[in-house]
Amino acid sequence: MTMSRAEMQKKARNTALACLGIVVGMTALAFAFVPLYDLFCKATGYDGTPLRGAAASGAVSQDAMVVHFDTNVAPGLPWRFVAETPQVEAQLGATKTVFFRVTNTGTTPSTGIATFNLQPGLTGGYFVKVQCFCFNEQTLQPGETMDFPVVFYLEPGIKADPNTRDLSEMTLSYTYFASKNGQPQAALATPAGTRAN
């Protein structure tokens, strides 16, 4: 049985529409993946993403862990960024506050946004940030200095988890990036000695 030309064209059109539908669906999934993955990490503490929550309300444990603070500034942002202390000893279940100082060392106003990570990644589900400056765009005038607090506590359950109970320290790492429209930019300026095409 031979297909007529009209039937072949209809079949080809249906195949093309199905392929187009798959491409559109895959593109939509690609765009949805990043925010969904971000929500998953924030909800579970996966891959070193600290949890967000209210102030600690449970009992304070006698156990403690050392929390190190690592501060970085990406190239292209003329800021100096330091923690008030390189580390603190935090009792499990007790709320701690640490201040971070940011100074614009440039000659023009600039805007930055901080991202963070917690290592080892397994500790993310037990590190709860009550208040943080991360992901909030900040604009500093030339020479301006601002102090930003991070308020956090460590869930006592970290010592009951067989994957984390032997850990005694963790590192909370922040990196400030130049920001544009609320998004971190790897480099906003063209490096010296190069020209845009």
Rank of each mutant, 00 (worst) to 15 (best):
L17S: 09
L17H: 14
L17E: 09
L17F: 15
A18F: 12
L20G: 13
G21W: 10
I22S: 09
I22A: 13
V23I: 14
V23S: 09
V24A: 15
V24T: 08
V24D: 10
G25Y: 04
M26P: 04
T27D: 11
T27V: 10
T27Q: 11
A28E: 04
A28S: 06
L29Q: 00
L29S: 00
L29I: 00
A30R: 07
A30S: 09
F31L: 13
A32E: 02
A32L: 00
F33I: 00
V34K: 05
V34Q: 03
P35Y: 00
P35F: 00
L36I: 00
Y37L: 09
D38L: 07
D38N: 11
L39M: 03
L39V: 01
F40H: 13
F40M: 08
K42H: 09
K42P: 03
K42Y: 07
K42A: 11
A43C: 03
G45R: 02
Y46S: 12
Y46N: 07
Y46Q: 07
D47I: 04
G48L: 05
G48K: 12
G48V: 08
T49S: 10
T49I: 02
T49N: 06
P50S: 07
P50M: 10
L51S: 05
L51T: 08
L51H: 06
R52V: 15
G53C: 14
G53Y: 14
G53Q: 09
A54D: 15
A55C: 11
A55E: 12
A55Q: 14
A56F: 04
A56H: 02
G58A: 06
A59D: 11
A59G: 09
A59T: 08
A59P: 07
V60K: 09
S61P: 01
M65K: 10
M65L: 14
V66S: 03
V66R: 10
V66I: 14
V66P: 03
V67E: 06
V67Q: 02
F69P: 07
F69T: 04
D70Q: 03
D70L: 00
N72Y: 03
V73Y: 01
V73W: 02
A74S: 14
L77E: 08
L77T: 00
L77P: 04
L77G: 00
R80K: 13
R80S: 15
R80F: 15
R80M: 14
A83R: 11
A83I: 14
E84I: 13
T85R: 15
P86Q: 01
P86C: 03
Q87G: 01
Q87D: 08
Q87M: 09
